[in-house]
């Protein structure tokens, strides 16, 4: 129990640092602008209570907001993503999965399922994020293009991070 909380806390810190101090410093393009910190919310165990999912979504979003001086847009986008996650898991997982309290990751559910899960939620997150950032529908098609390309880039990075961080002994 306590091990799990410490593990999640470390993941929170690692992903935020990776996002703000590595990815934001190296991958700065105006069209492709990936975000990997939502992986923290994606990988929470399936039995995490809905309140905790939304609270943690808000927490990770507002942390990134404070680090990037963007008042509230990351928090809004991540809370929306957390909300969708609850229903996506209810619709796509069997009762057995909930009883075993699996983690919605590549090891437990396979690459194909995880890719669909991640791309849907990342796209929703990026869509809210970029529309709130631009704050107008005038640049509609540019924003949609930016959202799609960034979501694809985020998906690649998220899968890469998952493979890198997967415990080697349990990989088979």
């Amino acid at each position: 129990m306590y091990r799990d909380i410490i593990y999640q806390a470390l993941r929170f810190v690692f992903l935020v640092i990776l996002q703000v101090f590595v990815i934001n410093q190296m991958l700065q393009y105006n069209l492709i602008n990936p975000f990997v910190y939502p992986l923290f919310i994606l990988l929470l165990p399936v039995n995490t209570s809905f309140f905790l999912v939304l609270l943690l979504s808000f927490a990770v979003g507002i942390t990134v907001d404070l680090l990037q001086f963007t008042s509230g847009i990351h928090a809004s986008a991540t809370v929306f993503m957390g909300f969708l996650r609850i229903y996506f898991l209810k619709a796509s997982l069997s009762k057995e999965n909930f009883e075993k309290n699996i983690k919605p990751d590549i090891r437990d559910k396979g690459l194909a399922w995880f890719s669909v899960y991640a791309i849907v939620l990342l796209f929703a997150h990026h869509l809210v994020l970029y529309f709130l950032e631009v704050n107008t529908f005038r640049e509609f098609f540019f924003t949609i293009l930016k959202t799609s390309l960034s979501a694809l880039a985020s998906l690649l990075l998220v899968i890469l991070i998952e493979y890198l961080l997967m415990p080697t002994s349990k990989k088979q």
Binding site: F50, F51, L54, L55, S57, F58, G61, I62, D65, S71, G72, I73, A75, S76, V79, F80, G82, F83, I86, L132
Partner: peptide, 16 residues
């Protein structure tokens, strides 16, 4: 679930 989501979303949007 919706109401908790709603409260968090409103807090964030007020900030925005």
């Amino acid at each position: 679930i919706f109401w908790v989501f709603f409260i968090f979303e409103v807090i964030s949007l007020v900030l925005v």
